[in-house]
């Protein structure tokens, strides 16, 4: 193609730049106004602060127990993900290798969960969690999120493992390797990209979930970040420096992780979208 000015290309940039502003301006106002004193937010909502303050953060940090909330959210997200990847890949390996009516049925049983939100089972989950003594407990959230992750994990991992050449697993079998050994030494290293995709599909919904903490967590010690922000934001309605600081605190770790890894992130997501 020629290098001369193309009107269609300029229009494309125009549309995309406009949208980039629509996306970035709100995020910018959140971050920049969280370090301004209250009065200046209303006088000068978009510019750099003339007076820099961290009061909002200090207040939000002391009013809420954000160190605790972060720790809780991190425990829930990491343990759920490890369980999803471990349990999901074991099941997917069995589903991919075992061709029988039982395994076909189980595959469909798992996949059916892709389209049905777990929230609709909340009423009975409430009773199950109570009966197991897991309300107000991070373990309750972890088990629910692990169950919630099973459909996508079995779906993505089974199709990925089926695409692994049979010769590789057969060769290991002839050498007398146990199934667990094949899973660990042959399959796991090969399915790393698929594991990344499963991680991406699960980590954001788990980290950002409000529904289950809102219903199951009453105790302050077990609050997650989203739940903590909800409660703080209610108190801070009129103090925007504090309100925006609380929001920024919840957003910045996610934003930082996304900006660092957006390349891999989008690649994993696209791989998943193509498979589906």
């Amino acid at each position: 193609m020629s290098r001369r000015f193309q009107p269609s290309m300029a229009a494309a940039h125009g549309v995309l730049i406009l949208w980039a502003l629509v996306v970035l301006l709100p995020v910018w106002t959140m971050l920049i106004n969280s370090v301004k004193p209250k009065r200046e937010i209303f006088r000068n909502p978009f510019g750099l602060p003339s007076e820099f303050t961290l009061d909002g953060y200090i207040n939000a940090w002391t009013d809420g127990k954000f160190d605790l909330y972060f720790r809780n959210s991190l425990i829930v997200a990491v343990v759920s993900l490890v369980l999803i990847l471990l349990i999901g890949s074991l099941a997917a390996y069995a589903l991919a290798s075992w061709r029988s009516r039982v395994s076909n049925f189980l595959y469909i049983y798992f996949i059916a969960g892709l389209m049905i939100p777990i929230r609709l089972g909340t009423i009975n989950l409430f009773q199950i969690i109570q009966a197991l003594g897991l309300s107000d407990n991070l373990a309750g959230l972890i088990l629910i999120y692990t169950a919630m992750g099973m459909p996508i994990a079995t779906f993505v991992l089974t199709s990925f493992i089926r695409s692994v050449p049979v010769e590789l697993t057969e060769a290991a079998r002839i050498d007398g390797a146990s199934e667990f050994r094949i899973y660990r030494t042959v399959i796991l290293p090969l399915i790393r990209p698929a594991l990344a995709t499963v991680t991406i599909f699960n980590v954001i919904p788990i980290w950002n979930d409000l529904w289950f903490p809102l219903i199951f967590i009453r105790n302050q010690e077990a609050r997650t970040v989203t739940l903590g922000v909800t409660l703080l934001f209610g108190q801070y309605q009129t103090d925007w420096t504090r309100a925006l600081s609380a929001l920024s605190m919840a957003a910045v770790p996610v934003l930082a992780a996304y900006l660092l890894m957006s390349g891999q992130f989008i690649k994993g997501l696209t791989a998943g979208a193509l498979k589906g």
């Binding site: 349990i87 049983y109 089972g121 009975n124 199950i128 629910i144 169950a147 099973m150």
Partner: peptide, 13 residues
Amino acid sequence: VYTVFMAFPLFNS
């Protein structure tokens, strides 16, 4: 895990 915390509660609800 999937049965106890997802499929069963859905149908039992």
